[in-house]
Design a protein around this nucleic acid. Sequence first.
DNA 1: AGGCCCTTTGCATGCGATTGCAATGCCGAC
DNA 2: GTCGGCATTGCAATCGCATGCAAAGGGCCT
Lengths: 360, 360
Amino acid sequence: MSRAPVRQGRRPVNAVDVAELAGVSQSAVSRTFTPGASVAPATREKVEKAAKKLGYRPNALARSLITRRSRIIAVVMAYLDNQFYPGVLEALSGKLQALDYQVLLFTSPDGSLSEPMFEQVMRYQVDAVVLASATLSSALARECRKAGVPVLLFNRTTDDPDVSSVTGSNERGGRLIAAFLAAGRHKRPAYLAGIEISSTNRDREAGFRAGLEAAGLPEPLRAVGNYTLTGAEAATRELLSLRKRPDAIFCANDHMAIACLDVARHEFGLRVPDDLSIIGFDDTGPAQWRSYRLTTFSQPLHPMVDSTVEAVGELIEQPYQKARRTVIGGDLVVRASARVPRQGVIDVNGRRVWRSSGEA
Amino acid sequence: MSRAPVRQGRRPVNAVDVAELAGVSQSAVSRTFTPGASVAPATREKVEKAAKKLGYRPNALARSLITRRSRIIAVVMAYLDNQFYPGVLEALSGKLQALDYQVLLFTSPDGSLSEPMFEQVMRYQVDAVVLASATLSSALARECRKAGVPVLLFNRTTDDPDVSSVTGSNERGGRLIAAFLAAGRHKRPAYLAGIEISSTNRDREAGFRAGLEAAGLPEPLRAVGNYTLTGAEAATRELLSLRKRPDAIFCANDHMAIACLDVARHEFGLRVPDDLSIIGFDDTGPAQWRSYRLTTFSQPLHPMVDSTVEAVGELIEQPYQKARRTVIGGDLVVRASARVPRQGVIDVNGRRVWRSSGEA
DNA sequence: AGGCCCTTTGCATGCGATTGCAATGCCGAC
DNA sequence: GTCGGCATTGCAATCGCATGCAAAGGGCCT
């Protein structure tokens, strides 16, 4: 067996090499690899043959230098242990790839886009930045605008009115959950909060409180889980150790709801939903697992991602248009972790969903 | 409030602009942004002030063009719903970022590196390719070598002796699990297979069979789950519907073990581990959740990722060295999904771990 | 004061492509 | 036969930065 031919430290082949072999100019080579450029079929054929022979591939970096378009999108993520985000990442990456965009991934331990990380993002001339699960200081938002790089917030918003975002219906979800609990004759609701300053937490809680008040229920008991498993466990213990414990806990996301449910069942020996109702948010994979069967408000992955990709495309074409804030609808998916009201549960595409009487 | 200044479609600032403002040459600007270059402190200061004023950032793409190093690593992934991989991705990305490498993410629906995707990878001049959860045809491996791009297989191997890889101890893990089941007096073992052609599945099964034989147990019953949730559910139903059902199932990964456990408990009403022992592989997050408490063989994330990063670094420095195949050790972590032998369970850093008598 | 050496600086070139412009060639029409 | 027009093609400039080389500057020693 002979070893495969190896280009040991040699200069990689470029358009000039191909041009020489094909007996044409370097421009011709460039044009055969540029969709829509003017090349005679015969020329194109010669070039393609030479290119294949030499193993030539256009250098995307050099191209970006001159076109000022890298076709790279920066995606900033954290909390990949919350199943919601791997799903987002997979969908986002797949859809961007289909449009011939590449994803440059940045992960941030604490969920914030740090200054040095931001600097790297900018150096790579990305065409846009998608921030999922990362807080963006308004200083950095301004930096981006200054540099002409569109930014899109995924699953969070900010006060800055010039920053576009795509989110689920956090406020409405919280409100609906309150109504659902009220309809299920719960008396002592609790809220298990995520990261206090996050917009998702703020909006879900605001909706929940508004809904409780509208239903004539008391203010919720409250503990903070910071969107982490251990945080949620501790918060659950706190709530369930109360003299008068809650009969329902709305957890600000599924990730925490799972921890909450496990603690309730296995540490406190409670039956769910007989002794305690637990509701989540997101409808991630594990929410559907047989051991949990969470009742939860869904954030539909694909619509959210589709909308994100669309918005990114528009922002790249027209960087300075008005910010667009897209809110994607969701449903209160009824499974087995919360007591079910007598009325309002309907069937939608094989899923059980709850609609309050006030809604269509 | 005045709007932030916006560089509407204007040329971004480059090193020449900075040089002019600072009253130095463009080379000086380049040097102050190149670690280790020779610049007088006074010059550096002038340049830095000018750069800050103009909001200058070096163009990494232009730099790559000349240095022939993009500092971009392509990472190819699939199956992000198996929690093992998001963890890998997060760790890998974090560690590469710390070394000033960027991650260009490619996701592949079916886990294989397709031809057009490969083409994109190559066009972006990545310094190396890490394939996790993707099969690499040996044709493509040869292409990479030809182009001088190092490839590293994560959690899989290939027959090609020239391709480096980092894996867990699949064979040993399978063998140890067999010994563990034998020590626990199980009589009818079963194997729930992953993707048949994957190296992980092959090695785990080979080890398992060897171990069973060594222990004098019969060949395992067998069904295929293809590393998917629904596949594993179906496979479990198949196994548990057998006239003489198994008393232990080794699932080729945790992802499937969870589906297996749920089906056993909730569809067949079996008590685990009293009626049936279930063992997984990977020790991912959900394996530790209270509802599952899987006994499983661990693939230690950080050692595996560290080794990967190290190997990538070496391959970039010395692309044509001999392939290195690293195998990272793991432990049989004892939790509650399998009957525990009387002997051999010891405590390691607060984790219960099983050691066969044949081992150190 | 002169010479030597080391540090710092600028000049100029090149990395691999895209693209406006002008030149070329070929075609049919008159 | 000549010319207009269109499709192709090549030339050359350009994108933003790195870097070899030579020149300049400064400090120190004799």
